[in-house]
Design a protein around this nucleic acid. Structure first.
Lengths: 368, 368
DNA sequence: CGCACAATTGAATCCCCAA
DNA sequence: TTTGGGGATTCAATTGTGC
């Protein structure tokens, strides 16, 4: 990887007031680990909407959400996406949130610019606003796109184990059930009214940042608003760079973030993935005396057997032929399968019963 | 509305083998009530079109190549969407299903052609395939777009009450939890292998057809495959027109659909909405002797009173002034509200207590 | 202070016929 | 095409009020 300059210190953990495209273009190339963007949705609302009790829905009618047509919205979208891509590190990722009004246009623009979509994520709202007139399904979700800067960027950050822990031990899915930002979390003005019409819940940002960044990383948010991204970044020990056009929002965000206490390092460091644990060649188990050459390994079903050789390979034979090679190769060969994880496939006889050889690998890692 | 020719009888409940765009163009304009489309996610029509993750397009780092691939998918998408729009009735709706690989391009194309998105729907899979490599979130959903032919088409079919019933009495949301098509429902070939790689569950089509069509309607599916749309349409008393380029799939679909028994009419007719009930002028209650001129009506809170006049109007006075007019107008006026449903607002004194005048309207409708 | 009930609110492309 | 008017339409969660 070529050396890239870091984020200049005078941008770090700051909010820049101004046009986000200009601001991004003033940053050096490749200085950001992750982008989180909550752009205008281009809602195209018509007249007022009344609830059955005749109260008026407080709609998002701000000027910043108004675009003359799809062409204008698209050119705006493509401009900020391109600027964001320039400041992203090669292995950085981008999150964008939107609704059906705009998300298809954003996804198309992303793909056209070379971003590589990793997932689309559905934020299922536990308490959405109903459809008052009974003319459609309750619009109960929004969509996030998570994309790598580049198709070839394979080493993006994804804290798989942390997500699994958050999801009670099973893989985190692409549909997340989270409540709206209401109650005490919702920022209010002096008049008691909401400070920003579209403030996102911190739980949503928490999950995005935990999944796709590490402590010390720099997160850029080009549509900072009242600073949810900055608040969560600070709490989780990440740096942020906030871009916001409206100085009123920026001031609210500054005050909000200043009141956040970062969590302790050890609490925000992602659970290490198995992949990052030190590699242990199978032969080391033999060298360490945990397995003897000539020992017989067996698969969980008891259908397949293989013999341990001193060089750290296995040999086996069955109706498919004679097999010799690594624990993975022989595991695959005896099953006629394209691939096999030998560490969990092959078992040895222990006192307490049959155990996977991965058990022995863990002993090596523990230094036994 | 201009008169439109119906679907020709020789197309009805048939499968046309051939290119779906050609087939649609051979149909008259505006002859279809609903389209359900499950287009190729990866584009390999006749091996002529791209697949975004095709290994042959190795290391696509050339912007022009990327554009060329997506451009071909887009032109295919725009061609079939335009053909579908032509055969849709003005008040017809279209469903498309896709994944993050293609749905953004489809949504953009839809909007560009003038379709008006009504909802995006998330099919949450209760049993998705896990992410084996642990590099992404489990891809646990697919996305459907439901769109009207036109922004101005307000009278599209949406069986709100039926959906509400299906969802235990609360509005159906935009996220649907349904299992994959497996087990006995999954069509298998002689070799025991699945007959079609992307067969959709009938439950998914059931919900789309129940929501957005009526018995007797004609449903067009331009990517018919093994005929899930046809099977559900036949069971629910809808007509289908299936377009499929592969004669093998078409044959499987024909056999499958022939074995379906349509349900009884009364079982597939949507629950009627109140809007569809006959209108009863308030004055009819007076003519029928259910209310006497001079009777006093009262609102549920007891704050407002009005007097019934012989011509079917009400009169009332309060701090806001003197009010005279329809039950709705006077109800709104006494409250200072923008609107009011007089039938549920105004009550009369009955033996068992206070009852809404809607109770009397129901007696009229029942012919008492 | 607790409990019951009422009021408020959230990124919303939200009615429909007849004159 | 526009206007007027009948009358149909809401879920979950939090906050405020009254007893």
């Amino acid at each position: 990887m070529t050396h890239l300059p870091p984020m200049p210190v005078d941008y770090l953990d700051r909010i820049l007031v101004g046009d986000c495209i200009d601001s991004m273009n003033s940053l050096p190339e490749g200085c950001v680990d992750m982008v989180f963007a909550d752009p205008p949705y281009n809602l195209q609302l018509g007249g007022d909407l009344l609830r059955p009790d005749n109260s008026k829905v407080d709609a998002v009618d701000d000027d910043w959400d108004k675009f003359a047509d799809f062409a204008r919205y698209d050119s705006f979208t493509r401009a900020w996406l391109a600027a964001a891509r320039r400041v992203l590190k090669p292995e950085g990722t981008l999150w964008v949130i939107g609704s059906y009004h705009n998300i298809f246009r954003i996804g198309t623009a992303l793909q056209d610019q070379g971003y590589w979509i990793l997932n689309d994520i559905v934020w299922r709202k536990s308490n959405p606003m109903p459809n008052f007139k009974g003319k459609r399904f309750t619009n109960a979700h929004e969509t996030l796109i998570w994309a790598a800067r580049d198709r070839r960027a394979k080493r993006y950050t994804f804290n798989y184990e942390s997500m699994k822990e958050l999801n009670e031990g099973v893989q985190m899915r692409s549909d997340w059930l989270l409540p709206l930002c209401t109650g005490g979390e919702r920022l209010k003005g002096e008049d008691g009214k909401k400070a920003h019409p579209t403030q996102k819940p911190e739980s949503l940002l928490f999950r995005c940042l935990m999944a796709a960044s590490n402590p010390g990383d720099t997160i850029l948010d080009p549509f900072f608003g009242t600073g949810t991204t900055g608040a969560v970044a600070r709490r989780l020990g990440r740096h942020y760079v906030g871009l916001e056009r409206d100085p009123t929002y920026a001031a609210i965000a500054r005050k909000r973030i200043a009141e956040i206490s970062p969590l302790a390092d050890e609490d925000v460091t992602p659970k290490p993935s198995k992949r990052s644990e030190p590699r242990v060649p199978f032969g080391v188990l033999i060298e360490a005396g945990l397995l003897q050459p000539g020992a017989v390994l067996i698969d969980p079903s008891g259908r397949h057997r293989a013999r341990v050789r001193a060089d750290g390979t296995l040999s086996a034979s069955n109706s498919l032929g004679e097999h010799r090679g690594s624990i993975h190769q022989v595991g695959a060969a005896v099953q006629g399968a394209p691939a096999c994880n030998g560490w969990t496939f092959w078992h040895f006889e222990a006192k307490g019963g049959r155990l996977p050889i991965d058990h022995l690998r863990q002993q090596v890692r523990a230094g036994l």
